Simulated scan of single mutants.
Amino acid sequence: MSSLSKLAALTSTNKPTERMPVLFLGHGSPLNGIEENEFVQGFRTQGKQLNRPAAIVVVSAHWETKGTRVTAMKSPRTIHDFGGFPRELYEVRYPAPGNPALAKEISRLVKPEHTVLPDDKWGLDHGSWTVVKHLYPDADVPVIQLSLDYSLSPRQHYALARQLKSLRDKGVLIIGSGNLVHNLDMVEWRRLNEPYAYDWAIEANEKIKGYVLDGDHDSLINFNKQGKAFDLAIPTPEHYLPVLYSLALKDTNEEVMLFNDQPLGGSLSMTSLKIG
């Protein structure tokens, strides 16, 4: 039995969909793990509309490594990789199982330019569990994470992601988790809970959405050549790169739907995408 056959057999009593969509989720504050707001409601709505996957792969902004790694443990820990939040948030556990068979399959699929190594130390960081818990609150779908290799160029990230497309046909839901606009140094903290954005943040977010809807992936890959607004919106790439992973999995004829399309605190965007 192949590793993906084992995956389907071991992870679900329901028949997985023939082809899963792809998500990019603007994950925002870790508090989305415990708060009830419009963004959490948006995640929950998507969860209700999706068929139950055999497993989930999350590419989170919060796991950067030298070389690409994939979590390969049977029971990934819930990582509270943040500080200064209410005790209630640190007490949350999302005990979804892992899936070593899927981790092994990803290592097999990604070749020959890149090597994906198994990891038994990481787990599920807040870019993963604070959003996935709203999609599947029972924590009964296996979840693994794929890291961002900080030595790769944006085009190399995109090329790596394209090699994972066949997983969609095996009932695997792939999620990029970050934020299209993410500049913490310029957040207007007094307006963090308001749909407020600086002019440059609006400009960057609208252009990114335009490129997404037009299928202009080259412009999105070359985000560092798009001008001042993009430079301010993406001062460091880790929160932006997950959208490239999601878009790389899109077929030409597939539609993209936007949701949670709101700015916050001047310099953040919660804009999220569903592909397929």
Rank of each mutant, 00 (worst) to 15 (best):
S5W: 11
K6D: 13
A9R: 15
A9M: 12
P16D: 03
V22D: 02
G26A: 10
G26V: 11
H27W: 09
G28P: 04
S29Y: 05
E38Y: 12
E38Q: 12
E38M: 13
F39H: 13
R44W: 10
Q46H: 04
R52K: 12
I56P: 01
V57T: 07
K66Q: 11
G67F: 09
M73H: 04
S75R: 12
I79G: 00
D81Y: 08
D81K: 00
G83E: 12
R87D: 15
E91C: 08
P97C: 11
P97T: 08
G98H: 03
A101W: 12
L102I: 15
A103T: 07
I106R: 03
P112R: 08
E113G: 06
P118N: 04
D119A: 10
S128D: 14
T130F: 04
V131P: 00
L135N: 07
P137H: 05
D140Y: 05
V141S: 00
L146R: 02
D149F: 08
Y150Q: 13
L152H: 07
S166P: 04
D169E: 15
V172Y: 06
I175L: 01
G178Y: 07
N179Y: 13
V181H: 00
D185M: 14
E188D: 15
R190G: 15
L192C: 09
Y196K: 06
A197F: 03
W200P: 01
E203T: 15
I208P: 00
G210V: 04
D214G: 01
D216S: 05
D216V: 06
L220N: 03
N224W: 14
N224P: 03
K225T: 11
G227M: 14
K228C: 09
L232V: 09
L232H: 06
A233F: 06
P235Q: 06
T236F: 09
T236Q: 04
Y240M: 08
P242E: 02
L247S: 00
A248Y: 06
K250A: 03
D251K: 09
E254M: 10
M257Y: 14
L264R: 14
G265H: 03
S269H: 04
S269Q: 07
L273K: 02
I275E: 08
I275W: 07
